[in-house]
Amino acid sequence: MPNSSIKNEAQYEALRDKGYSKQKAARIANTPESGERGGKAKPYEEWTKSELYSQAKNVGLEGRSKMNKSELMEALRNN
């Protein structure tokens, strides 16, 4: 049964099949870039702290307001 709050249902289901939690799969499937092929984004080292913060907000990272640039990069990579 489709969930109207999930923007990319196919990606959500694929992530759930890989063992992701419902919450994490939904966060990823609901990001604006969900389902796009990778390789187009510049490395996090080239992002500004503001851009990193916005991305952290998009994926729902907690504690992001207290993180510096390197902590935001690490958290985004390990989320």
Rank of each mutant, 00 (worst) to 15 (best):
S5K: 14
P43V: 01
A29T: 00
L52I: 03
K22I: 13
A56V: 03
N8W: 06
A29G: 02
E74P: 00
S5Y: 08
M73I: 15
S50D: 14
E71I: 02
P32G: 12
E9C: 00
K57S: 13
L52T: 01
E9N: 14
V59A: 04
A10T: 14
G39Y: 04
K69H: 09
K24S: 03
S5R: 12
N68K: 15
Y20V: 00
K40P: 02
S4K: 15
G35C: 05
A26T: 01
L61R: 02
W47N: 04
K40F: 12
M73N: 00
P43T: 01
A56M: 06
A56S: 09
K42D: 09
W47Q: 09
S70T: 15
T31A: 10
Y12N: 01
S50H: 10
S70P: 01
P32C: 03
R37E: 13
K7D: 04
Q23V: 12
N68V: 11
G35K: 06
K24W: 01
R64T: 06
N3R: 15
A10Q: 15
A41C: 02
E33K: 14
W47D: 06
N58S: 14
E13L: 15
Y53N: 11
Y44Q: 00
K7G: 02
I6M: 11
E33C: 07
S65T: 14
K49L: 10
K40T: 10
G19P: 03
D17Q: 14
N3T: 10
N3S: 14
K49P: 00
R16A: 04
L72D: 02
E45D: 12
R77N: 15
K66Y: 12
S21Q: 05
Y53D: 10
S5C: 06
G39S: 08
N79G: 08
N30Q: 07
I6C: 07
E9W: 10
N78A: 08
K24G: 00
K57T: 12
T48F: 03
L52D: 01
M1V: 12
G60I: 01
Q55N: 07
G39E: 05
P32M: 06
G38P: 03
L76R: 01
N79I: 08
G38C: 07
D17A: 15
S54K: 13
A75W: 06
R16S: 02
E33I: 13
S21Y: 07
L61Q: 03
A41M: 09
Q55K: 13
